[in-house]
């Protein structure tokens, strides 16, 4: 058993959840995680002992994802993701919750990718803002503004409201 065994188990589960939320299709998501782990394996000697293993793994996966998105942009057709994942989602308890979660999923898809990534890393994976900044290689201030825009957009759209004036205290 590796000293990193338990920690890695936790991180791999986390990577899989994030990948699923990001690309939705189970096969694609697991391929993404597999590719990221393979790449991590090939550069394990670059990992500095005592530094943040989780941020390191998410950074690698983020870069793999960017490359995949780029290479796929050239390909013609994608699966009708929305139809696929809806069927695969675990059955929620009641009708009301189902609608809400479906809405959440739909709204999530309307976000720009850069906002969606920040929202998922923070709200779903619980990464610290500094970790998100390191993973996405952007300043913390940018993390905060993307997070803020993502959450407000989701809030307004879930409320069914028009993206009208949202009061925001600046001071």
């Amino acid at each position: 058993m590796s000293i990193f065994g338990i920690e890695l188990e936790v991180h791999i589960a986390s990577l899989r959840r994030y990948a699923r939320a990001l690309v939705r299709d189970r096969g694609d998501a697991d391929d993404l995680v597999q590719e990221a782990l393979a790449r991590a394996l090939s550069r394990a000697d670059k990992f500095v002992s005592g530094t943040n293993l989780r941020a390191w793994l998410f950074t690698i996966m983020h870069n793999v994802h960017i490359n995949q998105v780029r290479s796929r942009a050239a390909r013609p057709v994608e699966v009708a993701v929305e139809d696929v994942h809806e069927a695969r989602m675990s059955e929620p308890a009641n009708q009301e919750a189902r609608v809400e979660l479906g809405e959440m999923l739909r709204v999530l898809d309307t976000l720009p990718a850069e906002q969606r990534q920040v929202l998922l890393l923070v709200a779903l994976e619980g990464l610290k803002y500094e970790e998100v900044a390191a993973v996405l290689e952007i300043p913390v201030g940018t993390v905060m503004s993307r997070l803020s825009r993502a959450r407000e957009a989701v809030r307004v759209r879930l409320a069914g409201g028009t993206p009208a004036v949202t009061l925001r205290r600046v001071k």
Partner: peptide
Amino acid sequence: LGERLGQRLDAAS
């Protein structure tokens, strides 16, 4: 993959 990665990380530290 996790097991192999763990071993490599062990070796690296």
